[in-house]
Computed example of a mutant assay.
Amino acid sequence: MNVRNSRLAALALATGVLCACDPAVVPEVITPPALQAARVERDASGACFGRDVTPAVIETRTEQVMVSPAVPGPDGTVLSPASFQTVTRQQIVRERQEVLFETICPEDLTPAFIAALQRALAARGFYIGPITALMDLRTRRAIQLYQRRTGHDTAILDIRTARDLGLVAVPRDGGGN
């Protein structure tokens, strides 16, 4: 066991001892603000919708623009070399958008559902780690990576993704979101 691993083991042991002393001490799952941005709202029919903001995509291009061409002499030698200027431009490739999408209602995100979600994402190579049944940072990142393939770049589980993963029944008419 190397020094780093022994320090991690000692820290884990100390944390476990501290938590064992005080049953009120529960490790907190901290989610960065970027992954907390979406809001879930319920409509009149009881369906839940996530509201998230996709950031603008800005492309920066830097290029050399010729200010003056080279001046050749009568014998073909260069009397004055060309001069260039560096020009940098930024262009918005995709505007910032507020996206509304059907999602799983918070009360349905049970530990059993989250564990099944983690297993489904792990089977597809998007979730790496233990099955914790917690909607933690690792799980949200896996959701976002999986959904990014369809152009839905959010860490909030879309109902279409849940159906695609086999976690939510598909309506009989085959429709839905």
Rank of each mutant, 00 (worst) to 15 (best):
T31S: 02
R42T: 14
D136V: 14
L134V: 08
A20F: 06
L18F: 15
P106H: 14
Q90A: 15
D43W: 04
A162R: 02
N177M: 08
F101D: 10
Q118E: 11
I159M: 11
Y127D: 03
A120F: 07
Q36R: 15
V71S: 03
L109P: 10
V3W: 06
N5D: 15
A123N: 02
A37H: 07
F49D: 01
R4I: 00
F101L: 03
Y146N: 06
S45H: 01
R42H: 03
D164K: 03
R138F: 10
T88M: 14
I159A: 11
L11R: 08
I92R: 07
A34G: 06
E59I: 00
R148I: 10
L109H: 04
T86L: 12
D136H: 09
R138N: 10
V93C: 08
R172S: 15
R39V: 14
I159P: 02
T86K: 14
A10I: 13
R96W: 12
G46M: 00
Q97L: 04
N177D: 15
A70F: 05
L121I: 11
R138S: 14
Q91H: 13
G129D: 01
D173A: 11
P106Y: 13
F113T: 06
I58S: 05
C19R: 10
T60C: 00
R89L: 05
D75V: 14
G73F: 05
A120M: 00
R61Y: 06
P171D: 05
Q91L: 10
D52G: 02
A120G: 09
N2P: 12
R119W: 09
T31P: 01
V71A: 07
T154G: 10
D136Y: 09
G46D: 05
P32M: 09
V71Q: 15
R39D: 14
V65T: 11
A155D: 14
I92A: 10
C21G: 12
R172G: 13
L121V: 04
R51F: 06
R141I: 06
N5I: 13
L13N: 09
Q36P: 02
R89T: 15
A133K: 15
G151N: 12
D108L: 07
V53R: 08
L35K: 11
A155V: 02
T150C: 13
T103M: 03
D52E: 15
G73M: 12
G76A: 09
A162Y: 08
A12Q: 12
F101Y: 04
V67Y: 05
D158A: 02
T154C: 05
T31G: 04
T161D: 05
T62Y: 00
